[in-house]
């Protein structure tokens, strides 16, 4: 062995280990992308292609699924259809080719909006409650602080669905069933303990001197919190918000149990989209694809903060 092969840096990984790491990541990414790609492809298949066996990788793309997702259609006689004015859009045309007409929009858009309202609403509430509680726990002398913090954490020690029946009964009694407010409160209740714990970690890391400097400079406690602590806690707030959002956005069990109509979110709605002759897989796939978009956009927009945030302050200058 020559001296040059021995002389490698002990901090920088060698080119070879970087290469291996890169390969592993790519393989992992490809494997985890397969189901997503399959869902995406299915969204553009015709209903029969979507359940064909062996599965079709090459197929003739259609907008059947997308149209079924956004519209309700009804069967009419050929005479009636020919008496109509020419189709106004692509969904109209697809429907008429099968002796159907578009009767109106489906429930998908309102359900999707419900999901947005409830997920973002509960995330905002969890983060606001979390950051104020975390600040108090971090900075003030709170009686029985450790016990309180443990209690807050203990609310996560059983699966939330274990209390589904009592919550169902309580919500019915309180008139919170199938309301936006009810779902926002429920998801916030689940998320707030996570938010308090995560954010307390981040706020503990911010030196007190920053606020104290603001205090002696004439700022009130609240101003110091808003203008000095919050900007420095951005990373933690963003990371916490993403965790809360992902939970609320994907939550299925409570949504199924507690919502059915006006406040129903997308997760319980999507799997039961029925088309002509049963489950409408292309429509389900199209809905699932669209369902991924908000989280994807939110995460990509904030990914810088997220990456730094998920290391929990371990990376400090």
């Amino acid at each position: 062995m020559t001296a040059t092969t021995l002389a490698h840096s002990v901090v920088e990984p060698s080119g070879r280990s970087k290469g291996i790491a890169g390969t592993v990541i790519v393989v992992y990414a490809v494997i985890s992308m397969v189901p997503l790609v399959w869902i995406f492809l299915t969204a553009f298949k015709s209903p029969s292609d979507s359940i064909a066996y062996p599965p079709k990788i090459v197929f003739h793309p259609t907008l059947d699924g997308t149209c079924n997702l956004f519209t309700t259609i009804s069967r009419q006689t050929a005479d009636y259809i020919s008496s109509l004015p020419p189709p106004m859009n692509v969904c109209d045309r697809i429907a008429r080719a099968r002796n159907m007409v578009v009767a109106g929009p489906s429930n998908f858009v309102p359900r999707f909006l419900n999901s947005l309202i409830i997920a973002f609403g509960s995330t905002a509430l969890s983060v606001v409650l979390g950051v104020t509680a975390a600040y108090a726990f971090s900075r003030f002398r709170v009686p029985a602080k450790d016990d309180l913090l443990f209690f807050i954490l203990s609310t996560r020690m059983m699966p939330p669905i274990a209390v589904a029946i009592p919550i169902y009964l309580m919500y019915r009694e309180l008139g919170l069933s199938d309301t936006h407010l009810g779902m926002i409160l429920l998801y916030s209740a689940v998320n707030v303990s996570l938010a308090v714990w995560l954010l307390k970690g981040f706020i503990d890391e911010i030196p007190r001197e920053y606020e104290e400097a603001a205090l002696v400079d004439g700022y009130t406690r609240l101003q110091a919190f808003r203008k000095v602590v919050l900007p420095q806690a951005t990373t933690g707030i963003v990371a916490t918000a993403i965790f809360c959002l992902i939970f609320a956005w994907n939550e299925y069990a409570f949504a199924t149990l507690l919502t059915s109509g006006q406040a129903q979110t997308a997760p319980p709605f999507i799997p039961i989209i029925i088309g002509e002759g049963g489950q409408d897989w292309p429509a389900v796939a199209a809905a699932t694809t669209l369902f991924l978009v908000p989280i994807l956009v939110f995460t990509v927009l904030l990914r810088k903060n997220l990456l730094r945030g998920i290391t929990f302050g371990a990376v400090r200058k």
Partner: peptide, 16 residues
């Protein structure tokens, strides 16, 4: 503290 009109320079440099 905000009412006292005293300036404080900390051991840790508390620059924002």
């Amino acid at each position: 503290a905000s009412q006292r009109d005293i300036a404080f320079v900390f051991q840790l440099f508390a620059l924002y």
